[in-house]
Computed example of a mutant assay.
Amino acid sequence: MMDHTEAPPQDAVEMTVTLTVNGESRPLSLKPNVVLLDALRDRLGLTGTKKGCDHGQCGACTVQIDGKAVNSCLRLAAMCEGQRITTVEGLARDGQLHPVQQAFLERDAYQCGFCTPGQMMSAAALLEDERIGDSDAEVREAMSGNICRCGAYKNILAAIQDARPHSRPADSGGDGR
């Protein structure tokens, strides 16, 4: 005899995931297919991370996971359990802007501002990556995954180079900043 017990549809099943975002542990009940971008924006209210292309091609959704720049639209939230996630809201510390944020402000490295959070997150990560040199060409290459439709690239590059001597060494603490 056939068993007519059916499993619930995949979209009805949720799982508990605990994300560490900007140094704070945040338990969430999510469907397994929820991407990190949607969990951050829709469930945690961290709207600094922008939804751009949803295909990992524009960089607007860039966050840092364990200090590395990652397109949050391509990463399932459940995959991030146990990792340190930093969003643009978590760059500033103790009321002080991160050197990249300060340099973007001083260099007017934004126009419409839509790509700015992703640009800042990538810039902060590249300044901590010893594999990336400090020439303009190497910085441009490292930032090539972040698109600015307004064309503020010259000022973005200048801001990154200005922030270089002021960037903080990687923090071994649990908040990823």
Rank of each mutant, 00 (worst) to 15 (best):
A159D: 07
G95V: 05
S144I: 03
A103I: 03
C61N: 06
T20P: 03
I147W: 03
A123T: 05
G95E: 04
E128M: 08
K31T: 14
C53A: 11
E130R: 12
A77S: 14
A39S: 12
Q161L: 13
A78Q: 06
L40R: 00
G23P: 10
M120P: 03
Y110R: 05
K154H: 14
I156W: 13
G56A: 08
K31V: 14
G151E: 14
Q102D: 09
Y110M: 15
E14L: 13
D162K: 09
V70Y: 04
A152E: 09
T16D: 15
Q119G: 04
D3W: 11
M120F: 00
V63L: 08
L105Y: 07
A39H: 07
A92Y: 03
L127S: 02
P9W: 13
I147T: 12
S25C: 03
H98D: 08
G118L: 11
P165V: 04
D3H: 12
A142T: 04
R131M: 09
M15K: 11
E128I: 00
T5R: 15
M121E: 06
K50G: 01
Q119R: 08
D3A: 13
R164D: 00
D38A: 12
H166M: 05
T5H: 12
N146G: 12
R140Y: 12
G56S: 08
C73D: 11
G176V: 05
Y110W: 14
